[in-house]
Amino acid sequence: MSINGYLIVAGIIFCIGMLGVLMRKNLIVIFMSLELMFNAANLGFVAVSNYLNLIDGDIFVIFVMVVAAAEAAIALGIAVAFYREKATVDIDKANELKL
C-alpha cells in the first residue's frame, strides 16, 4: 500500500474530529473528538516515518501520547469542575464572559 492511502485516511479522521469539535456541545464528546484528531496526526507521523525509513516520527508519536495522557487528566478535571459549578456539561452554559 502506498503512503497516500494512509495519509488520506489520516486526513479523513482528522477532519471528522474537527467536525465533532465544531458541531457538538457536549464537553465530553468534544474531548473525545480531540483525541480522534491526535490519533489521526499520529497515524500520519507513523506512515511518513515508515515511508522515509526514519525513526524520528515514531518517537514523536510516543511524545504525542504522553501529552495526550496529560491533557486527558487536565481536561476531565476541568469537566468535573464545570459540572460541579453548572450541573451540566453543555458548553453554551459557559458564558460568564458574555456582555
Binding site: 457536549n26 465530553i28 495526550a68 476531565l76 469537566a79 459540572y83 451540566t88 456539561v89 453543555d90
Partner: peptide, 22 residues
Amino acid sequence: IMVLVVLVIMLLNLSKIKKIKM
C-alpha cells in the same frame, strides 16, 4: 485514557447530558 473518560461519564448525570441539543 478511555477508562478515565468512562469513569468521568459515570460521575456525571447521564440522563441530563443526553438532553443537550445540537
